[in-house]
Computed example of a mutant assay.
Amino acid sequence: MTDRENGGLAGRDRTASCGGPYGGESGPGDCGDPARFEVARHLRAPLWVCPVHLGPSLLLADGVLWPPGIRLVR
């Protein structure tokens, strides 16, 4: 099965939850919606967010690259 057939999540949890609203390092955020985007961050794990929390995470999450590196994961 290719990465494309797998929904772009080869080797990853297909039910990943949103880490929003701002990608707190203490654990997943309060959202719980399925993550649709991966936001690249400097010296941190990528932040997985839903469409609602994409904008706030770009503005307020720690270590977000600029220009932001955003990837659609589903």
Rank of each mutant, 00 (worst) to 15 (best):
Y22M: 04
R44S: 10
H42I: 15
L72H: 05
C50H: 10
L9H: 04
G55W: 07
V73N: 02
R14I: 10
A40S: 13
V73R: 09
S26W: 15
G19E: 12
G24N: 11
W48N: 14
G63Q: 04
A35G: 06
R12P: 01
L72F: 08
C18T: 03
D30S: 14
P56C: 13
E5V: 03
R74A: 10
D33G: 00
W66I: 00
I70G: 00
C31M: 04
L60G: 01
L9Y: 01
C31Q: 10
W48M: 15
M1T: 01
L59G: 04
N6R: 08
L59W: 04
A16D: 00
P21W: 03
P46I: 03
P34I: 07
G19P: 00
G55A: 12
L58W: 05
A40Y: 09
L43T: 15
L65A: 00
D3G: 06
G11Q: 05
E25D: 11
R14P: 11
P34C: 06
R41W: 13
G63D: 03
E25I: 09
C50P: 11
P56K: 14
V39F: 14
G63L: 07
A16K: 05
P46N: 12
P51E: 13
G20Q: 05
S57A: 15
E5F: 07
L47V: 13
P46L: 06
G69P: 01
A61Q: 02
W66S: 00
C50N: 12
V73G: 02
P46M: 08
T2D: 05
D62K: 02
Y22V: 11
R41S: 12
A45Q: 15
S57R: 02
R74Y: 03
R14Q: 09
R12N: 08
G63W: 06
G55Q: 13
A10R: 09
S57N: 05
D3S: 07
R44H: 15
G20H: 02
R12W: 14
G23V: 03
T15R: 06
L72Y: 05
E25G: 07
D3E: 10
R14N: 05
R44C: 02
P56Q: 13
A16R: 08
C50Q: 12
R4G: 08
P28I: 14
A16Y: 02
